[in-house]
Design a protein around this nucleic acid. Structure first.
Lengths: 332, 332
DNA sequence: TTTTTTTATACAAACGTTTGCGCATTATTG
DNA sequence: CAATAATGCGCAAACGTTTGTATAAAAAAA
């Protein structure tokens, strides 16, 4: 029941903890023979190093903290998965907390991670968050901070985002190519850069291809299914015949309402989403959407964290390529 | 850049670390006056306790390990979310690892968690896992183990599962009530109790209501969308007019194939799923399914863990109620 | 052989807490 | 007023590692 320590091993071998410690670390200062002997005995005794003691002494921990708005979101859980995939083989473990899109919880999460002396923090900001002092505190302590997806440029350090701009740019072009004339945008919160970029991709595409953009058919905060369902009814009356949505849920809501209204998609109306949620290709009609490679993003984030822990703290912004996936909802 | 410790606080106050430690812990052995003073100064200095040092000394950590097959699965990420919700307010943090449905990774995860001296481990077994010695080792060390969903009765300790049996029992009854005559079952792996229970719910319902069950139309390992799509073609030739699926993906595959074949659902054919994935009510026709309350399950799991950490290690199996949700795919 | 260098190991301090014990000082009791 | 009890605090050891320095033994050089 009692855990075996290096002292136990040392005692059994008539040597000292220091030698055992070095032997296990493959330090050349201890002879090959003893190194092997120690390792053998350690294994026999079922020795498991106490990482807390080790970290305490070394002043460096093997824990990496991660804060996401919600764990149970397709995109975020994929990112987590990718991060874990890279971090674990390197001997790091992931301490995960969710902010529930709420600044208070986010602050608590940061504090909790700091108390646990994590080697670094990976974070995607809650929508609510405006005051960033808790994260600034992390940086001030010299703890690496890697941001992803929901980032703030007011914080230094690596940032990894999707190429939101290109995603909606391509989606818009595709709708134009299909001959839709009056294309609206269902955007997200103005507060988040990700959504601002998506909107910009849409407007720039329109400007580039048609030379004009009508601000009256651009809507913020239409990201939920309900919002999409309601808003699409309004835009139909405005002569709109296609929408570029900043999310798949609002796009699905729109498709639902269109179905009820008897508006044919894609014949009379085009729709594109963003995120390529699993349901996108399961619904009818299949929804064109911008695929965000959450898993891959996670891997990139993790690599940035590894670099930062090693002391290479570059303040860069990496855009992970996205892929616009054409499906029935936007092709005619 | 240097972290402030209780020694720094003690020095500033002209007292000792022991007093500071006790003051922060609200120990009555130090006067109310000093307690308040210490806390005030601690806050001023931005003191954050070093949980590693604390845990090392106390021999108890605030970390709880969690192993799931895959983080990015709707059900699992929901459970994680629920666990986190309960554990965090109690001062525990979650160390999460994924086994990727692979025993090797599972073993590594267990070892990693043990090295981190977690207070307990929450686990859902990988399909592959047959040899349970890594988990037995956890129990032998006296570390609480709480299993959920994918459990093994060969390991002691609390287990939390869905009421799989009732879920498919009700689904089957509903299909019978709708007048379907020959009802097949698309099951999962025989190795997992969850799937065995689901199968039993189906067979028992048939026995109770019709007195007979045809083993020829019960299939194992039909859980993927592809498998469902293929298998449904076969069962149609066997005169089957409904299926109870042990998962939503195979059910969806079946619906797809039926659509292609021109078989009308629910008029000519009934389908039920299991899991109530988000897409279940977004597809056409909407899929009847058994809802598993992942979040709630997580909360229950977390509470069991709290009890176990407190030393109340009861070996019980808790069945979380499920809810059969009737939708178009099974009603006529 | 003696001296120097190398090699292998041991000693002890440190990381930041917690906690049993002891010692003053003050309050309570007979 | 002496004896006892209670209060508040300090001392020091301990948790399990790591690591700089010292020391002994062995190998190399003189």
């Amino acid at each position: 029941m009692k855990k075996v320590t290096i002292n136990d091993i040392a005692r059994k071998l008539g040597t000292t903890p220091s030698t055992v410690s070095r032997a296990l670390a493959d330090n050349k200062r201890v002879s090959l023979k003893t190194r092997e002997l120690v390792k053998k005995v350690a294994k026999e005794m079922g020795y498991q190093p106490n990482l807390m003691a080790s970290s305490l002494r070394k002043g460096k921990s093997d824990l990496v903290g991660m804060i996401v708005p919600r764990i149970n979101r397709h995109f975020f859980s994929n990112v987590i998965s990718g991060v874990e995939e890279v971090l674990n083989p390197k001997g790091y473990s992931l301490l995960i907390m969710q902010s529930q899109e709420n600044t208070d919880s986010e602050v608590k999460a940061v504090n909790s991670l700091m108390r646990n002396r994590v080697a670094g923090i990976i974070a995607s900001l809650s929508v609510q968050t405006e005051n960033l002092s808790h994260f600034q505190g992390v940086l001030d302590e010299g703890i690496p901070l890697v941001q992803f997806d929901r980032i703030s440029n007011d914080l230094s350090g690596p940032k990894v985002v999707n190429d939101n701009y290109t995603g909606t740019y391509e989606a818009t072009c595709q709708l134009l190519k299909s001959g839709y004339k009056r294309i609206a945008h269902f955007g997200g919160s103005e507060l988040l850069k990700a959504y601002r970029e998506r909107k910009k991709g849409y407007t720039d595409a329109l400007l580039d291809k048609t030379g004009e953009v009508d601000k009256d058919i651009i809507f913020n905060d239409v990201i939920t299914r309900d919002a999409g369902r309601e808003m699409v009814k309004k835009v139909i009356d405005m002569g709109v015949d296609a929408i570029v949505c900043a999310g798949d849920y609002s796009a699905f809501g729109a498709l639902e309402a269109l179905g009820v209204l008897g508006v044919k998609v894609p014949e009379e109306f085009g729709v594109t989403g963003f995120g390529n949620e699993p349901f996108a290709e399961m619904i009818y009609p299949k929804l064109s959407s911008v695929e965000q490679e959450g898993r891959e993003m996670g891997r990139i984030v993790a690599r940035q964290m590894m670099d930062a822990i090693r002391g290479e703290q570059h303040t860069i912004e990496i855009a992970v390529p996205v892929k616009f996936i054409k499906r029935a909802s936007s092709i005619r």
